[in-house]
């Protein structure tokens, strides 16, 4: 078996949210930390799509930012194509790997500099990594990239404001592809777009994956989007993966009570006007997460063990699930 392109082990990130030193001293308060990501493991095989889903604050975007080097992990390891990423290595040393991983952001209005022409935006990675020899080659490569995402080479002369949201996201994708990456981290790439435009972008992402053999990490809160894109899904809750499964398995047989809750909340076009089981509660604060299983205050199956002991991510069929009730076999199928 070939080695996965991306391997993540025990990845964690905490943020210091303490009050200033003097205030802490006067109130005799300890430092406080927000554990945005508290130990996450997964591996993404080459040419496949892994999705991380969860509600705001679950840590999915923090994982994405650590993977592409925008945030430094507090603990854990990221291995890319067999090479561990050393956060202390200099920019130069990391450049050959950074070139191979790129990111697409949610908001195509905020992620493109309005003062730059599209050709300059798309060519930026070419210049940054020194990937073209002269201006003619640069121009040719930009034209090729714009065509690949369904725009015309003439669009390179325009500014971002002349484009619609969907076209801007195409520009972001063209820029991300400029350095010929193997791995794209896509953080909510279609959340700001209308449904019909979303379909265009998702279809484009699939085509590019097929043509270029790309590997994707897709961050999304939208389970329906995940179901049409992902091969493998990790469900996150308060900084941890609570269920990790092949996509077909996850959608056909969700195991963790939180996964079931999420799936049950997706509005359904077929089952109209059904009365859904009322879902109680909201996501608690990640600064003071509940002890034991962080989901226990909202879980209909919680018992004493759930309140005391944090469940480990254990194999359950083709999936891996962190739930005492699943482990003990006391969940209804």
């Amino acid at each position: 078996m070939t080695r996965p392109l991306v391997e993540v082990e025990g990845l964690a990130r905490r943020f210091d949210v303490s009050r200033p030193w003097l205030a802490r001293l006067l109130a005799r308060e300890p430092r406080r930390f927000l554990h945005a990501v508290a130990g996450v493991d997964f591996a993404i095989p080459r040419g496949t799509t892994m999705a991380l889903v969860g509600e705001s604050g679950c840590g999915k975007s923090t994982v994405a930012r650590m993977l592409v080097g925008l945030l430094r992990p507090s603990a854990g390891r990221i291995v890319f194509d067999g090479t561990p990423l050393d956060p202390d290595a200099g920019r130069k040393a990391l450049a050959p790997i950074r070139r191979r991983m790129q990111m697409i952001f949610q908001d195509p209005y905020a992620s493109l500099d309005p003062r730059w022409r599209v050709e300059a935006i798309v060519a930026e990675p070419l210049d940054a990594f020194g990937l073209v020899r002269d201006r003619a080659e640069r121009r040719e490569r930009v034209a090729e990239l714009l065509r690949a995402v369904g725009l015309s080479p003439a669009d390179g002369r325009k500014y971002p404001h002349e484009f619609s949201g969907g076209q801007r996201q195409r520009i972001s994708i063209a820029r991300a592809l400029a350095s010929r990456p193997d791995f794209l981290v896509c953080d909510e790439p279609t959340s700001a777009l209308d449904v019909s435009v979303q379909a265009q972008i998702l279809n484009l992402m699939k085509e590019l994956q097929e043509q270029l053999g790309l590997t994707y990490l897709l961050i999304s809160h939208n389970l329906a989007v995940v179901s049409v894109m992902a091969d493998q899904v990790g469900v996150m809750y308060l900084g941890r993966i609570v269920e990790l499964a092949p996509a077909d398995e996850l959608f056909a047989r969700p195991r963790h009570p939180y996964t079931r809750l999420l799936l049950d909340t997706v509005p359904d076009l077929e089952m109209r006007r059904r009365e859904r089981a009322p879902v109680a509660g909201e996501v608690p604060s990640p600064i003071d997460p509940p002890p034991g299983c962080a989901f226990h205050p909202r879980c209909p199956f919680a018992e004493r063990r759930c309140r005391a002991e944090r469940p480990a991510l254990l194999p359950a069929g083709p999936a891996r699930v962190a739930c005492h009730a699943v482990e003990e076999g006391r969940l209804p199928a």
């Binding site: 619609s164 379909a199 265009q200 279809n203 699939k206 179901s227 049409v228 959608f251």
Partner: peptide, 24 residues
């Protein structure tokens, strides 16, 4: 009809979504 086809649905598998070309 295009709008309905463009909506991703759970259980529909990993196929291509119906696409309305262009923008409003």
């Amino acid at each position: 009809r295009g709008l309905m086809g463009a909506i991703p649905r759970i259980g529909a598998g990993k196929g291509r979504l119906v696409q309305i070309e262009g923008a409003m």
